[in-house]
Design a protein around this nucleic acid. Structure first.
Lengths: 184, 184
DNA sequence: AATCAACATGTAAATATTGACATGTAAGAT
DNA sequence: ATCTTACATGTCAATATTTACATGTTGATT
């Protein structure tokens, strides 16, 4: 499906970027729903260049340090826009190792289950707080055509998802505490 | 990390199964948070057998059709239990192509955005209904040590997640409708 | 007798992804 | 001068995952 291809093209529509900058975007702003490391990005940029969907200019910092600043081409914009318009089947599964563990949790004593859940809760709460802090940059809904709109709605979604996960964890803890009271 | 290894071991603790039956589990009961197809499962079973974590007996149906029914060994149970006890770092990212699209949605006119969102909404609602129907098998919280407990909590989580996604989609539609009213 | 759905097991090729290996510069602080 | 952090680009090996290829049986229905 080559989603990374479209992720990169979409980012380059905003502004020309180096591979390094793209990697930063994938590690920060987009990190809540997409990720790629530089070892994937550099080969993909090369491929996109071969396909004529991006071009680059070489920039020199200092004396010799070269950076390739990639821009999207007309063809790239066309392909990206076509992709963006497509309806999409929801994916069969969102793999989730922790839920897999919980699926098998009857093999654990209640104490261990609660320990594992509390541990996850704490980590998710931490992430939630980070997201909420980030969302303070958006006191209002950005304009529909601003590139901050997408960031805003996705951030909202990430916050809602975190809250939902924590709610689920709390319910799980509740079930276990109630069940353990009867037969400890 | 070889999560499939532990997923298979965990399933085999419940009861001995053939590769075909494992594949069915991954396509039905577990499908909301894990998935694997037979082309992954058969090689993994071979590997687990080489490692002494599972064994199999050959069953004959009819005249010649052979089926390998795999069971978990003592070593397998030990490794599985050790894995199950481990705390786990929450994953960096849950890749989500639709959210990636929404992140770039400023490149679409409001009508198209709403169309894409409604399409997703419908699909997620359909899945939610299926999940709710499945959850009717659980009028009460199963016993903590029954293997139905894990299924129950994970199913609860899947329902909550679906509801949450739909809520997010509705909010997105709301933002777009409100924004489009001002500048159509 | 033919057909179909479910049972059953495998391999191969292509793609996606992660983590390690590998190298070096620029700019600012100490 | 030295150190540290950020900038910058790449390859390689190992896994993980999907899709297609490949084959055949069993049991029930028509």
């Amino acid at each position: 499906m080559r989603v990374l291809k479209y992720a990169i093209l979409g980012l380059l529509i905003k502004r020309p970027m180096t591979g390094y900058e793209l990697a930063k975007e994938f590690n920060f702003e987009l990190a809540e729903f997409w990720h790629a490391s530089h070892s994937q990005i550099y080969p993909e940029l090369k491929k996109l260049n071969d396909e004529g969907l991006v071009t680059y200019d070489i920039e020199i910092s200092g004396d010799i340090l070269e950076a390739k600043r990639y821009s999207i081409t007309k063809e790239g914009e066309l392909e990206f826009t076509q992709w963006l318009h497509k309806d999409e089947k929801i994916p069969k599964t969102q793999k989730d190792i922790f839920r897999l563990r919980m699926y098998f949790s009857n093999n654990l004593d209640p104490k261990t289950r609660i320990h594992l859940l509390e541990n996850q809760r704490q980590q998710h709460l931490k992430r939630l707080n980070t997201l909420v802090k980030t969302s303070e940059q958006y006191p209002e809904v950005p304009d529909l055509y601003s590139d901050r709109f997408g960031d805003f709605v996705v951030l909202k979604g990430a916050i809602m998802r975190q809250e939902n996960i924590i709610e689920w964890i709390d319910q799980c803890i509740g079930y276990i505490e109630a069940g353990a009271k009867n037969k400890p």
